[in-house]
């Protein structure tokens, strides 16, 4: 995912996938969930840009409308993509921590 997407949506794609990994949600619930677990406030334009991209790639899928809100859920391909992205980020975190240790000082 990170290799393919470098624009303003790259972080949003990851956040939306991470949110939906916890279960199906509609737009407002995603914004609240993302704020709760990452502290990031996604605006509607960025959120729906990410939703459209993820849906187009088959990484999430829409569920039937509930009143005027449509929940989305992560697909098996989405789980794979998220797993790959998390693994990449874990490597980056490990490398960053290692280099910080070399610099010394408080962690």
């Amino acid at each position: 995912m990170a290799r393919q997407e470098t624009g303003r949506f790259s972080g949003a794609l990851f956040l939306v996938l991470s949110s939906l990994a916890g279960g199906p949600k509609h737009g407002y619930a995603m914004i609240e969930d993302i704020r709760a677990f990452s502290g990031t406030e996604l605006e509607p334009g960025t959120l729906y840009g990410a939703i459209a991209r993820l849906e187009q790639r088959g990484l999430i899928e829409p569920l039937p409308m509930e009143e005027r809100r449509r929940p989305y859920r992560i697909t098996p391909s989405g789980v794979e993509a998220l797993r790959a992205q998390v693994a990449t980020m874990a490597q980056v975190v490990e490398a960053g921590q290692g280099r910080l240790r070399l610099l010394g000082g408080p962690r």
């Binding site: 509609h26 737009g27 407002y28 605006e43 334009g45 409308m65 005027r68």
Partner: peptide
């Protein structure tokens, strides 16, 4: 429709408009 419903759920700020 769903975007309009979302905008009804949360107040739109200047940043929201710019983002849209």
């Amino acid at each position: 429709d769903e975007m309009a419903a979302l905008l009804e759920d949360r107040p739109a700020t200047f940043v929201t408009c710019l983002d849209l």
